[in-house]
Structures are given as C-alpha cells and as structure tokens.
C-alpha cells in the first residue's frame, strides 16, 4: 500500500506493522467486517417478517395453519441453531436445484439421487458453472441470509406471539364493539400496540443474532472468523513476505473486542428506543416517564 513496502524484510517496528496491516489479505479481512454488518442489517428485518408471519399463523383460527406456526417455533427452539445452519445451507441449495431441474430439464430420465451423489442437469446448477466468481459468493451469502432468517424468524415468532397476547384484551373488545372486522382489529389495534411488549424480547433476540454471526464461517462465507484463522496462522518466510508465528490469539482477541463493542452499542440504542416507545404507555415505565416530566 505504501511506497516503502516493496521489500518488507528490511522493515522494522511500526513501519513493518503499517505495511503488514495494509496487505491485500488484510483489506479482505476489514471488508469482512462490512459483510457481518450487512448480514445483520438484512437479516433483522427479514427475520422479523418471518416471525410476524409465524406468529400470525400460530394465532390463526384455521387449525392446520396454527399448528404449522406453532411447529415452526417449537422445532427451531428445540434444536441447536448451529445444526440448523449446517442443515439449511445444503438443504436449501438442493431444494432450489431440484426445483430448477424439474422446470428446466423435464425430459431427464436418470434419478437425481444416485447413491452419494446429487445429480441435476447443468442448466439447473445454482449458480451456473459459467457465472463469474462474485455471483458464486453472492449466492453463498444469500443462502446464509435466508438460513439466518428462517432460524431467527422462529425466535421472533415466539416473541411476537407473546407480545400479541400481552396486548390488553379490553382493547380488542373495544374494537369489536365499534364494529371493526377481525382484520381491522388486527392491523389497527393489535399490531400498533404490540411493539412495546415485544421490545424486550426483540432486543434480546438482536443480541443473540449478533452473537450468532460468527457461525457464518460454517456456512462457507469468507467472514471475520475465516480471515482471523487465515491471517493468524503461522507464516514462514518461504510463502509470505511477512513471516510470523502463531498469532491466532491476537486476531481472535480483536474479534472479541469487536463483538463487545457491537453489543455495547446495541444495548445503548435499545435503551433509547425503549424509553421512546414507553412514552404515553399505560405501563410502569411509561408512568415513571410521566412522573419525571411533571
């Protein structure tokens, strides 16, 4: 990066460090922090959507739909999330390829599962073997987002289901008394009021989501854990311009600090949101706010 970095073996101390920390690989490492943040920012709303759908389904009066909603939350909560991540990445990939195979190659006669192989026609491959590298990477990332959303959608569904039940029954009865339909009651009365009850659960969930992001590593995405393992490993003078010993501990310490900062900032933001949402609510926190301003 800097002009004096052409021959690193002659450098010492801070200049060496400044060159070492600006190699191409380190740029990849810094970029992977952006990947993690992007994953968080996409996953959170999508998972909330999944959760909302799940919670609405679980509340449904139509029995199969409510069973489906309840089963979704129960299964995901009963099994370690890491198992889901490892399952969904292969399963979703195979499901997409299977569907494309059925659509694109209808006159294919061989079975798709041949012993230990999963064979689809070459047009059905995802992404196509001819597509450039960035499409492969984006596809992997999209699969990861979808997987995270499915798993955390189940947790969100559980939180939102509880929040929907926490809205005072009298509010809904009043709505009915005014002649609102079930749908109107749901969208105009229940949904606007449930967020304050959902917030503690959702903030907790956000923290769990933040702390689950290192699992991206297991989904084959080049995330911060991947780079920390890569960069921290022992480098000999033969294969690297910057030979060093085993620096895994230092790199992982850096990640530890990064996550501590991320969770601390989140905690502060959530405190603010809670304060704002409590305003004017008939809850203990709302009452405390009212007294403080008097």
């Amino acid at each position: 990066m800097f002009s004096y970095c052409t021959d690193p073996s002659t450098l010492e101390g801070l200049t060496w460090l400044s060159c070492y920390l600006t190699t191409g690989k380190h740029m990849g490492f810094y970029f992977s922090f952006v990947t993690v943040i992007v994953l968080l920012l996409i996953t959170a709303p999508v998972a909330l959507l999944f959760g909302f759908a799940g919670a609405s389904a679980a509340r449904s009066r139509f029995l199969p739909l409510s069973l489906l909603g309840k089963a979704y939350t129960a299964i995901v909560r009963g099994v370690p999330d890491i198992a889901f991540f490892m399952f969904f990445v292969i399963a979703l990939d195979q499901a997409f390829e299977y569907l494309r195979h059925k659509v694109k190659c209808p006159d294919w006669s061989e079975p798709i599962r041949q012993g230990s192989d999963f064979v689809v026609c070459s047009q059905a491959k995802l992404p196509l073997s001819t597509s450039p590298q960035w499409i492969h990477e984006t596809y992997g990332f999209a699969l990861a987002v979808l997987t995270f959303s499915i798993v955390f959608g189940a947790f969100a569904a559980n939180v939102l289901y509880g929040a929907m039940r926490a809205v005072p029954r009298a509010q809904l009865e009043t709505a009915e008394a005014y002649g609102m339909t079930t749908r109107q009651t749901f969208w105009r009365i229940l949904v606007p009021q449930m967020w304050i009850y959902a917030l503690p659960g959702l903030s907790n969930l956000w923290m769990i989501l933040v702390k689950a992001t290192p699992l991206l590593f297991l989904l084959g995405v080049e995330d911060i854990v991947y780079w920390a393992r890569e960069l921290g490993a022992t480098k000999t003078a033969r294969f690297s311009d910057y030979p060093h010993g085993n620096w895994h501990a230092i790199y992982f310490f850096g990640l530890l600090v990064f996550y501590l900062m991320l969770t601390s900032v989140s905690e502060r933001v959530f405190k603010r949101i809670t304060r704002r949402l409590s305003h004017g609510q008939a809850t203990a926190a709302g009452e405390a706010l009212r007294k403080a301003t008097q």
């Binding site: 933040v210 702390k211 992001t213 992982f252 530890l256 969770t263």
Partner: peptide, 8 residues
C-alpha cells in the same frame, strides 16, 4: 461476546 469466538 459470542461463545464461538470465546472458544476460538
């Protein structure tokens, strides 16, 4: 911090 990172 994540347990995963703590382990590593």
């Amino acid at each position: 911090s994540p347990l995963f990172i703590q382990m590593f």
